[in-house]
Design a binder for these strands. Structure first.
Lengths: 142, 142
DNA sequence: AGCAACTGAATTGTGCACAACTTAGTTGTG
DNA sequence: CACAACTAAGTTGTGCACAATTCAGTTGCT
């Protein structure tokens, strides 16, 4: 009984994540971005330049994921990479003028997704609170 | 303000899904299964044989994902595939004896994941209810 | 019966995620 | 100062997800 419940809750988290991806895909298509690429851009819009390590900490991704993703953003002309002078191990990621400009075109993305999810503000905050507790608990188990 | 909220809620769904995957990965490693493979096996344990289409409907996956996944399960000796006699377009997926046996070894997986998530039964049901509503709403938007 | 429309799987190509490893650069300790 | 331990990115290999396409088989319509 609980076993079935558990499987279904986990599956629903998984399914919700994929359903979100699908909506983001449609919304972001006009910008030529994927959802993970969009996440990287939002971090950069907030505080470029950042190192790859800082991006990884913010998005919980490692260099194995970020290196090729950043390479694609660079190829798209949105981003520029440069070794840090202070620490030659680090790579700083800068926005190009085109990357900065895209911020305006992307400004309605969050509202569109929020509308599509059909949640009220209170519900969204509750959901966020529960998910963060689950994430913390799962992290502890790993 | 709501924009930031939205981005974070979506991100938390995404992050929770990945954190769940990570725990499943550790737990399922001893069975030699990935999480999506485990999901396929649970469907088969409930009602094998099933067609690829039925698997896709149950897990919301298409043949582009399932075909190679099933090929790997077949290579691992857990599953057998056979064209349906009634409709030669369909492929029926059967459990092998080894695939059936694995059910016993996997019986404590759901409880272990549930414990790791640190949720009570009521909270889990609430979370499930909210997520299903979000999924339905997102599906409509797609 | 014959042909168009449809259906179920599989394939191809792109991108994300992560483990394991490599390489270059930095830091700490004797 | 030298060398071991560590750190940041990048690379390689595996697997999932999905769009687009292909192909064999089925169904419907006349």
């Amino acid at each position: 009984m609980e076993m079935t419940l558990d499987r279904l809750v986990c599956f629903d988290v998984h399914a919700a994540s994929r359903a979100l991806d699908a909506v983001y895909r449609r919304v972001l298509a006009e910008l030529g971005l994927t959802y993970p690429q969009y996440l990287v851009m939002t971090v950069l819009w907030e505080r470029a330049p950042v190192t790859v390590k800082e991006l990884g900490a913010a998005l919980r991704l490692d260099s194995g994921t970020l290196s090729p993703l950043l390479k694609r953003l660079e190829a798209a002309g949105l981003v520029r990479r440069e070794r840090s002078a202070a620490d030659e191990r680090s790579v700083l990621v800068y926005l190009t003028p085109e990357g900065l400009t895209m911020r305006q075109r992307a400004c309605d993305v969050p509202a569109r997704i929020f509308t599509a999810a059909g949640l009220g503000v209170e519900e969204a905050l509750d959901l966020q609170r529960v998910l963060r507790r689950v994430i913390a608990s799962l992290d502890e188990a790993s």
